[in-house]
Write a protein that binds this DNA or RNA. Structure first.
Lengths: 224, 224
DNA sequence: ACCTGAACACCGTTCAAGT
DNA sequence: ACCTGAACACCGTTCAAGT
């Protein structure tokens, strides 16, 4: 749906790009398709965006601004031990926003330029950890340890079944021939989970990994 | 350098693709350029590879096979508490291999098909953890908590300076206006590190994050 | 069975020309 | 200043034709 009345602007171009990615996936985000979306020729976009790389930088900026807005709204004063609850809440809120833009993590990982909204997000997180009693040195390590988890996502490269899809007995036996340990794990874990719900819930696993790291950091906080 | 004597095979095509990516970056890996590398037309490649996606799957397979070979060579019997040392060694060995193929992590994250070599890697890791006293249920969570770290890499999306590049005083002051906490952290961390060496070493940070997770898992191992 | 040349349908991007 | 149409240099991929 082209909105041709309003004149173009960087902001309007970027928002249209996010709409396309949300609706049709990141693969649908081409300069020609984006021109169509804003009711202009593809070439007109270059007056508001340097090139496609710049477009993708801007698109990430829009999404992380949405995260920052959501996270700012829930903020509480932090002192001492409650740092963990506050950090956890921020990160899970970031994750909620990203679930509305499932293509965004993939794009974020291709960016190399520092993004002001990403900096803003981490700046607040550093402030929170410092108020919570962390040394700057430990905070620096903590940011690396969290990595993309700080912003609410992890890129899974090992997807043993789709979570919802419980493997059949036949599939398990075929797997067991080549990968006995994996098959053993799957047999037990899928059995415990029952068959109605998926045996592998992304949200649960994200929170598990996050808590392992946050607990570990909390322990280091009090010992160094 | 085209080697036109030997006839084409999937293996030879994939190895040539890895060579191109190693030498000129993943951006240089096009079907036409790959054809050139093996001394054939681009279209001949389609007899050995279904399409570019399949090519990339195969390229990842080659790299992870290299990891598996390196990891198999160093393996030790594992019982009880020494699981951590063994897992750590495997993962850091995987990382060493990936440092020779810096483009590989980015490609791995775009793959959606299960890769037999990735399965083999995780199968051995599951076996190691199980021998170390982990329940299959905890192992399943552990794999998710580790994510790509299990294979020796993390995708950093927050690169506050290049590690080697210590920010200047002027840069710090400009940053402080918008991001006071980040600037405070940088000021202290870069000062402590001195100016000769980089203040932010990828290997050190990788090991820090890895140890936080492994230590956390070890604690859970003994309590559930 | 394996390889090829020409062609097709897409990209991002340039450039000179319009208003 | 902003926008456009035509064109360029690339992609991955198809297809009919060669051996």
């Amino acid at each position: 749906m082209a909105e041709s009345r309003v004149s173009l602007s960087r902001e309007r171009v970027l928002r249209a790009a996010v709409e396309i990615a949300d609706g049709n996936g990141i693969g649908a985000l081409t300069m020609r398709r984006l021109g169509e979306q804003v009711g202009a020729e593809a070439m007109s976009l270059y007056h508001h965006v340097a090139n496609k790389e710049d477009l993708l930088d801007g698109v990430v900026e829009i999404v992380v601004r949405e995260i920052n807005d959501a996270v700012d709204a829930i903020d509480l004063p932090v002192t001492g031990a409650d740092w963990k609850k506050a950090a956890r809440q921020r990160i899970l809120t970031a994750r909620e926003v990203l679930l509305r833009h499932p293509w965004a993590p993939g794009v974020m990982e291709t960016r190399t330029n520092p993004n002001p909204e990403v900096l803003r997000y981490h700046d607040a997180l550093v402030g929170l950890l410092h108020a919570g009693g962390f040394s700057y040195d430990l905070i620096h390590h903590a940011l690396h340890a969290l990595g993309s988890r700080a912003l609410g996502f992890t890129q899974e490269l090992f997807d043993p079944g789709d979570g919802s899809a419980t493997p059949t007995q036949a599939e398990l036996e075929q797997l067991a021939g080549h990968f006995p340990h994996l098959a053993g794990m799957l047999r037990e874990v899928t059995h415990d989970a029952g068959t109605t719900l998926g045996w592998c819930d992304d949200q649960t696993e994200f929170e598990f990994g996050l808590d392992v790291i946050l607990d570990g950091l909390d322990r280091l906080r009090t010992t160094r």
